[in-house]
Design a protein around this nucleic acid. Structure first.
Length: 570
RNA sequence: CGGGGUAUAGCGCAGUCUGGUAGCGCGCCUGUUUUGGGUACAGGAUGUCGGGAGUUCGAAUCUCUCUACCCCGACCA
């Protein structure tokens, strides 16, 4: 491709309303233009990247045995009413009427359509399992679209749906999709993690999110520094400390602690190590217990994980913290003076608290703490549970290495749906006994457009985008110096361009009459991984100049050796 | 949906308080110049000042209203 025939609409200045780096760079490099809130036009440069991602996804889906089809973007309300989601989905579902007044929606996902299709197409277990996918534009009417195509309303998604007679078959396909996803993101050249995810209300046996790791990610991921373990921070288990409960060495005593309402104050004023302090949090109780409230204890330097707290049978879901008035009424003291000793309500303690000895906590008496508290001596050991958020440096739950925490951008999701939709929509096949069996389903999504943004989020520098090679809109660029003035340079550049194209490279010839610096700035902004400079000076010395976008010094290459050189570098 | 903000040339912004000829930088066009990191000089084009209504001799500027967009929050299989 010649730049003179390709719209390279780069921007020198950063548009004011772009917040995150990928959004800024996509606008500046001319990959996308905003059409309306959450709606973007993909410019030719951006489309080239999209197509490269799609091609890899398609290849790997095909390799994994999935079959491509294409379903309508506009879907009839009847199917959504049948699954129950017409009511359930809320305003994110864009609804519309046709000229006859019939209800439709713009598909945010395609479970209904595929389930309807499959119940008509499939009649026998012998036809199973099947796995169909499509790459298609979807629409979710986000409350607040932001970050460019990272959280847009219209987006391109690869979605796949599998159907099975048995859960075992579902698990097998699920694993196949999981493996395919790993290959896809590896081939794309992204730093990613499969992350154990919550199944939410659907239940079922398994769900993994695939996250691209980047500083601007919206989700916090806990990962092991020496194994594959990764989980959403809400899900990550804080493993029980290995240490046993140490024997008491102090007696329990009541201490007057005025103006000591925070852990920090306790540590500063009374020189108590923070590991010897506990936080006492009062939350509303469920009907499982007689009391109205429950006290949750975590170590002073730990934070409560609200999801874990909510899962305790004694705790009301959704989690609700007691107000200060409620706390005073029930505990007889305000926040900052609370503790487990003589607590009038049930107490649940975190695993780390269970191994603490000689520790300090509020006395449930205003401005007093107990120091030197010991379980089993001063009070019975309460119920122990995993209550806290994991933190950096915690041991990994799989026993290998330590946890780090990074931000992730969710770009893929594999999900064992089970029978949620097939039940609701009566999608059955006959088994070998001639009995109708509801099929098990799985669904597997990849946000194609989001992958593009996530890749930039992860791969950029002060000059612009640094595409992984599989995603770059062009593999290499030929930059002639003064092509319009020097016939020798023009000839050499044209020859090189032809030579590279014939060799199968996706190459861009920058035939604009521009200063070299400006050209370079463009090439770096749009992130072309490899650059070859043709100059009068170089030609006289019998050399071209090669430089990689990823860094390193420029190298001289003889024109005759260029193909061989590129085979080794590109 | 709640709170805050913005809207002036393709992009980034000033001008609005205190009403009086529509501005700057970058980009764009023409020419000369320069040619290994956004060259310099000269000339030029481009605006319903987001829309509507009002006040006024006169509105980008004051008032009312509508719209769009951005940020924070809530929401999010």
């Amino acid at each position: 491709m010649r730049v003179s025939q390709f719209p390279l609409s780069t921007l020198r200045e950063t548009p004011a309303d772009a917040e995150v780096i990928s959004h800024q760079l996509m606008l500046r490099s001319g990959m996308i233009r905003r059409t309306a809130s959450g709606l973007y036009t993909w410019m030719p440069l951006g489309v080239r990247v999209l197509r490269k991602v799609e091609a890899i996804v398609r290849e790997e889906m095909n390799r994994a045995g999935a079959i491509e089809l294409l379903m309508p973007a506009i879907q009839p309300a009847e199917l959504w009413q049948e699954s129950g989601r017409w009511v359930q989905y809320g305003p994110e579902l864009l609804r519309l009427k046709d000229r006859h007044g019939r209800d439709f929606c713009v598909g945010p996902t395609h479970e209904e359509i595929i389930t309807d299709l499959m119940r008509k197409e499939l009649s026998s277990y012998k036809q199973l399992p099947v796995n169909y996918y499509q790459i298609q534009t979807k629409f979710r009417d986000e409350v607040r679209p932001r970050f460019g195509v990272m959280r847009s309303r219209e987006f391109i998604m690869k979605d796949a749906y599998s159907f099975h007679l048995t859960p075992e078959s579902l698990v097998e396909t699920y694993q196949g999709m999981y493996d395919a996803y790993v290959r896809i993101f590896q081939r794309l050249g992204l730093n990613f993690r499969p992350v154990a995810a919550d199944n939410g209300s659907i239940g079922g046996t398994g769900s993994h999110e695939f996250h691209v790791l980047a500083e601007s990610g919206e989700d916090d991921i806990a990962f092991s520094d020496s194994s594959d373990y990764a989980a959403n921070i809400e899900m990550a288990e804080a493993v029980a400390p290995r240490a046993n409960l140490a024997a008491p060495t102090e007696i329990m005593r009541e201490v007057h602690t005025p103006n000591t309402k925070t852990i920090q104050a306790l540590v500063d004023t009374f020189k108590l190590p923070v590991e010897k302090t506990v936080k006492t949090l009062i939350v509303a109780a469920s009907d499982q217990v007689e009391a109205d409230f429950v006290a949750l204890l975590v170590r002073g330097d730990h934070e409560l994980n609200e999801i874990k707290a909510e899962k305790q049978p004694e705790v009301e879901a959704p989690l609700r913290f007691a107000t200060e008035e409620e706390i005073r009424a029930i505990m007889g003291a305000g926040p900052g003076s609370l503790g487990p000793v003589n607590a009038p309500i049930p107490v649940i303690i975190d695993r780390s608290v269970a191994v603490m000895s000689d520790f300090g906590a509020g006395a449930n008496k205003e401005d007093y703490h107990y120091f030197g508290i010991n379980w089993n001596r001063d009070l019975p050991m309460p119920r122990v549970a995993d209550l806290r958020k994991v933190k950096v440096g915690d041991p990994s739950p799989d026993g290998k290495g330590q946890l780090g925490i990074v931000c992730g951008i969710e770009v893929g999701h594999v999900f064992q749906l089970g029978k949620k939709y097939s039940d609701a929509m009566n999608a059955t096949v006959l088994d070998e006994n001639g009995k109708a069996q509801t099929m098990y389903m799985g669904c597997y999504g990849i946000g194609i457009t989001r992958v593009v943004a996530a890749a930039i989020e992860q791969n950029n520098d002060e000059f612009g985008i640094r595409w992984p090679k599989a995603m770059a809109p062009f593999q290499l660029v030929v930059a002639p110096v003064n092509m319009k003035k020097s016939q020798a340079v023009a000839d050499a550049a044209e020859y090189l361009y032809k030579q590279l194209r014939d060799a199968g490279y996706d190459v861009l010839l920058d035939d604009r009459d521009m200063r070299l610096g400006a050209m370079f700035a463009d090439h770096e902004l749009i992130g072309i991984p490899h650059r070859l400079v043709v100059s009068e000076r170089g030609l006289q010395a019998g050399e071209l100049e090669y430089k990689a976008r990823s860094g390193g010094d420029a190298e001289k290459v003889a024109p005759d050796d260029v193909l061989e050189f590129l085979r080794a570098h590109v």
